[in-house]
Amino acid sequence: MSDQSTETDGDGTATETEATDRDVRLIGHRGCADQYPENTLLAVRESAPHVDMIEIDVQRCGSGELVVFHDDELDRLTDATGSVSTTDWETLSELTVLDSDQRIPLLVALLEAVPSETAVNVELKHEGMADEVLEAAGAVDNEVLFSSFSPTALRELRERDADAPLAFVTNESPESSRSIATDLDCVAINPDYEMVLGTSFVADAHDEGLAVNTWTIDDAETAERVVDAGVDGLFVDRWDVV
């Protein structure tokens, strides 16, 4: 497990090393969603001792608060129905996640629950949250990486903070994805793991100065293959997969 970086040679060009010589950052996807109720205070507290970074999802609910919840709809993770975007916080705050007693948290509460030595990847599910997300992240001492599938959401962050570390999340078109990431001055690109296997994706991203964090790794064999491909980080649903 390591810092978010790639090795470079004397002239600053990113270089690949053998998997056995590389430290790869372990990232708990939704707080290790196969082991704990995802995106909850319990998940981040329990997974934090075992990972370098915890990934969480943020979106705006019907009454305007920023909540940590992945799905657009409530029915997979709770006993309620309807969309997060049309449900007010008073209602959401009473719901529990899966078969646990854990409730849907506000972004500010979840960030406060992460130990300061553990990094956080805040994935923005949509645009229109930049100011509040940056404010929430600025209130904690953790290293925070901001990511999104939405170039617009990332651009809003960049316009408000020239130094905010950004990552573009993608599962299509390697060339255009790298172009978006470099245009937004991202520090990383987060692709579906299938995009890095048997391709030049990692080397090309490193040539652009981008770290590569790949998702979502469910077994040790796949983990070994993507590490061999040169990635810098693994999103995992179980911290014991590697």
Rank of each mutant, 00 (worst) to 15 (best):
A130R: 02
R60N: 00
N190P: 10
D232L: 08
A167D: 08
V97F: 11
A139V: 01
M195I: 02
V187C: 12
V144T: 14
E73R: 09
T6G: 14
A119S: 06
M1R: 05
T6C: 02
A203T: 14
A14W: 14
W215A: 12
T15K: 09
T20D: 15
Q4E: 06
A188E: 01
S83C: 03
S200D: 15
V114R: 02
S200I: 07
Y193K: 07
L134R: 03
F149K: 10
L98Y: 13
I217A: 05
G233A: 00
V140F: 14
E221K: 06
E94L: 08
T118C: 10
V212M: 04
D99H: 04
E172Y: 03
V196W: 02
A136Y: 13
L134W: 04
L77M: 06
E159W: 09
A33R: 15
C186P: 06
F149P: 05
S148L: 14
D3Y: 13
S93D: 14
L134Q: 02
R25E: 07
E224I: 02
I189R: 01
A223F: 10
S116H: 12
L234R: 04
E208G: 00
P151F: 04
E7T: 10
G138V: 04
I180T: 07
S85L: 01
T96K: 10
L41V: 14
K125E: 11
A223R: 09
E156C: 09
Q102F: 07
S2D: 01
E123Q: 03
E38S: 09
R103C: 12
C186Q: 00
C32W: 02
C186G: 03
A153P: 07
R238A: 05
S5T: 02
V226S: 01
A43F: 08
D237T: 10
T96G: 12
T78P: 13
T182K: 12
E94W: 02
T182R: 02
L77Q: 03
D141S: 15
V241K: 00
L197Y: 13
A109E: 15
E16N: 11
D185Q: 07
V68G: 04
Q35A: 11
A164I: 02
T182S: 08
L77S: 15
D79E: 12
L210D: 01
